[in-house]
């Protein structure tokens, strides 16, 4: 029997039973952030375009999808997707129970939480095409391969970088 190490990082996926409103997403992300032990985190869900992408109404603005600012850990950034799934990596398994409790506190609806392997470890061709040789492997698995450009918000201690295009 293999004994699980509690010092290795673990990956977790949280799937709420419904799509989250920006306010609920902010609350949940802040609870997750407050729990600590976070190495990286990805939010995933359907795209929220800022204008009608095709059809007779093409180009008409969608004001509901603009300026969806949320503040996480004191830094504000703009939501580009409807939050439906959160994948994250924790420093060790000891933060897992706290994370589960954080989700229970923050989410008004039922959710699934599971451990597994959700981020890839080797560079894909898409990663290579977008970034060249990736030095910091933590960004692997955080990129939407179908987006025209990389869609990635990097929250660091110093500043917020959002690389996104108007679509």
């Amino acid at each position: 029997m293999v004994t699980e190490s509690d010092t290795e990082s673990i990956q977790v996926e949280i799937v709420p039973s419904r799509f989250l409103m920006p306010a609920s997403a902010q609350k949940l992300l802040n609870e997750i952030y407050g729990n600590g032990g976070l190495i990286r985190i990805m939010i995933h869900g359907p795209n929220l375009p800022r204008s009608v992408p095709y059809g007779p109404g093409r180009g008409a603005p969608i004001d509901e999808n603009r300026d969806l600012l949320i503040e996480v850990g004191g830094q504000a950034f703009e939501l580009c997707v409807k939050v439906g799934r959160i994948r994250l990596e924790l420093e060790s398994a000891k933060f897992y129970d706290g994370l589960k409790a954080a989700c229970e506190r923050a989410l008004p609806i039922s959710f699934q939480i599971r451990r597994g392997k959700f981020f890839h470890t080797r560079q894909t061709i898409t990663d290579y095409a977008k970034f060249g040789k990736v030095e910091d492997t933590r960004i692997l698995g955080l990129i939407d391969p179908r987006a025209k450009k990389d869609r990635l918000a990097i929250l660091s201690e110093e500043r917020v970088t959002i690389d996104d295009e108007e679509r």
Partner: peptide
């Protein structure tokens, strides 16, 4: 929905509405 119809097979929104990328109903 005349265009951008996806939403039928997605989870509902928190308030019980069907997800609509173009926010046609609220």
């Amino acid at each position: 929905r005349g265009c951008t119809v996806h939403g039928h097979s997605l989870r509902l929104e928190e308030n019980g509405m069907q997800f609509d990328m173009l926010a046609r109903t609220e």
